[in-house]
Design a protein around this nucleic acid. Structure first.
Lengths: 112, 112
DNA sequence: CACGTCCTATCGAATATCTATAGGAAAGCA
DNA sequence: TGCTTTCCTATAGATATTCGATAGGACGTG
């Protein structure tokens, strides 16, 4: 098993990046994306439906995701999302933005 | 000089932590806190007055800061803030929370 | 005096996330 | 069959935080 501590709330502004990253690992449907985010963050991030679906619709609206209806692995009606080319660019951009923020925060918190 | 690139917007939820950290380096007034945040983040974070003052009032309201009027180094009327004991605890708690987020984000973004 | 700078302050808008709630459809079970 | 649970999507309302714009008082300088 992996070590695991309590899930924590998202930092506002990171959900889009996490969704894009989750989909970069392969197309998936809504709840599957949430599960994948939980998995790659080692249980740290727990994305709730009320946050997830508005975000998915927003990202689709922006042209970063494309969606089509299909069937889940459990025979449920599910909307499958995948990254568009524009979405892959966004993933790169948002990743770099995150790196800059994390680097600056790290420096700031270590300041004496 | 230090390397420096464009300032970027704050991630929502990090301003309180940055203010607490800035004041852990010594008491200061509002604009002085903003300058110190810019300095310890190497010019990455540029806190605007419209964000700063509501945050200061909020933190004071929560009992994490104590304020008193004084004179700035330029003979201006300035309100000096310092951390309370409770504020120091908050700084520790928020720092740890940030570390957990940053660690989980790093892992998630490196996932394959 | 006129002007720029420093410092504090507030309002309105925009944005994102959470909680709570809902419903349909498939699966499991008595 | 009938009942319950699980899976998947969806929305409304509440909350919180930051930004942009704007304001005004006080000091220093030319």
């Amino acid at each position: 098993m992996t070590e695991r501590s309590e899930p924590i709330d998202l930092l506002q502004g990171t959900l889009d990046l996490l969704i894009l990253k989750a989909l970069a690992l392969g197309p998936n449907h809504g709840l599957g994306i949430a599960r994948r985010i939980e998995q790659i963050s080692r249980g740290t991030f727990n994305v709730k439906p009320g946050s997830l679906f508005p975000a998915l619709h927003r990202l689709e609206q922006d042209g970063w995701l494309a969606a089509e209806w299909g069937e889940s692995e459990n025979n449920r009606r599910a909307k499958y999302y995948q990254l568009t080319a524009s979405g892959r660019r966004q993933l790169r951009a948002k990743s770099e933005h995150w790196q800059r923020v994390a680097l600056a925060m790290g420096r700031a918190l270590r300041a004496t």
